[in-house]
Design a protein around this nucleic acid. Structure first.
Lengths: 194, 194
DNA sequence: CTCTATCTTGAATGTTTATTCAAGATACTC
DNA sequence: GAGTATCTTGAATAAACATTCAAGATAGAG
């Protein structure tokens, strides 16, 4: 006979940012209260506990990223152009926001890998789905004759994904715009030529 | 009138492994006691506090890695062969040990970047030194005409380092030997050709 | 307008944690 | 071999933390 007052998506996005900033362990309930505006009791009522909030935030992250992916790959331009724009977007993300705000999936995997099997499994599945989506794009690029197909879509996508991991980590050490663009350039040209 | 009983290097290596396994925040003093064999009081006496132990462990890590680097690049073989062996060594490390035992520098940077400026500065400096060492090797390769020099040593080393970051992260998601070798192969051939 | 089911609040709880310190142990000096 | 400076020990301490819960607030039903 009364609805919850908070906006679930907003709360989850705030929690996402908090977890990305400080990591899961170092983000206290006080931090989460400050970030989300929800009092401890409400968080426990809505998400069971801190870990439940992380899981919910990961779900929101997955959805947000899926939508972003759609945005980059749903038009009619050549697949290679889309991929290049996507890569450029990653670089922008690395440069603009504080370096610490890396990909939540990778950040959480780094922190929780050997500590929480269930979370690890969820993270790895999400990452695998993302990689499969990238592979589909490469498959289409090959089907469109934008690439020769000499290197399989699977192989190309693995290299592309590895490159994004590398870019993200590199940005944490030297977040210089020109260097980042140069690296992305090198990475992309390695995919098309040869 | 009495010397410390513990072996400093052994203690620091144990602490390194503990920090790599669970991360800095989640490694409790109890964990550190179990890992190093030192009681809390001794740790505080020798390293001031938990953070001091991390700093000391980072120092040891730097030294160990420097020695390892020497081992790979001090013989008379072509620089490109040395680099390939070095890359292969990184891949082996990714495959063999539990995925979580990534590079301590990167792992710590991921966790502590925006939380401890002093540690962050130390980490970034260590990483920069490593990258400079790699750049020197590429410079020698160019001087030896193993590479054309069309792409500068700086540019090549940045790409190489980014590739290692990518490999390490990739291994955390799919630590399959054949895939890892394939990725390293692709990475290396991208440096030599074109 | 009243009632009640549901949500919100934040102080209290019990656990875990880093850190301290005084007592005990031990190796070196003279 | 006695004396002492130093190291080791682990229980005590105090702070920080996730979690609980009972009291208070509020929206919708009747």
């Amino acid at each position: 006979m009364r609805n919850a007052e908070f906006d679930r998506e907003k709360v989850l996005r705030s929690a996402m940012i908090a977890f990305m900033d400080k990591g899961y362990a170092k983000t206290s309930m006080q931090d989460l209260k400050a970030a989300t505006g929800l009092h401890p009791g409400s968080i426990y009522c809505a998400f069971e506990n801190k870990r439940g909030l992380l899981l919910a935030a990961l779900g929101q992250y997955r959805e947000d990223r899926a939508q972003e992916f759609q945005h980059f790959f749903s038009d009619e331009r050549p697949k290679l152009v889309q991929l290049k724009n996507y890569l450029e977007h990653v670089v922008q993300e690395c440069i603009s926001c504080q370096a610490a705000q890396a990909c939540l999936l990778i950040k959480a995997l780094n922190e929780l890998a050997e500590q929480d099997d269930e979370v690890q499994a969820i993270l790895i599945e999400n990452i695998a789905n993302w990689q499969t989506s990238i592979e589909d794009v490469f498959s289409q690029a090959i089907a469109n004759k934008e690439l020769t197909g000499e290197r399989s879509a699977a192989k190309l996508s693995r290299f592309f994904v590895m490159g994004i991991y590398g870019l993200r980590t590199y940005a944490q050490t030297h977040p210089q715009a020109d260097v980042m663009h140069e690296l992305a350039e090198q990475l992309f040209s390695g995919l098309c030529q040869e």
